[in-house]
Amino acid sequence: MTGEWPLYEVFVRGKRGLNHVHVGSLRAADDDMALRNARDLYTRRNEGVSIWVVQAADIAASSPDEKDPFFAPSGDKVYRHPTFYDIPENVPHM
């Protein structure tokens, strides 16, 4: 479908001194829209929160089981886009 917007991954730094942490994904037509949507959805527009967005297709990723002898042969399939970490307690609104 021509109208389909690409998938973005969203990373949030809850406060200074912490890493950005993956919080989820969303769809947006462009980077600006992705940032805005991320702010609405994942931070409820909390001021002072830093947000990164990146198109899921632009992320190079290893499989979580890469070092494992049973490395998944289908690990490079695009639909298995990555989500990285558990959400730590100190990220607001999670």
Binding site: W5, L26, R27, A28, M33, R36, N37, D40, L41, R45
Partner: peptide, 11 residues
């Protein structure tokens, strides 16, 4: 028109 905008309009 899209769920992301549902959230934004409600905001």
């Amino acid at each position: 028109p899209e769920l992301e905008d549902e959230v934004a309009i409600a905001n």
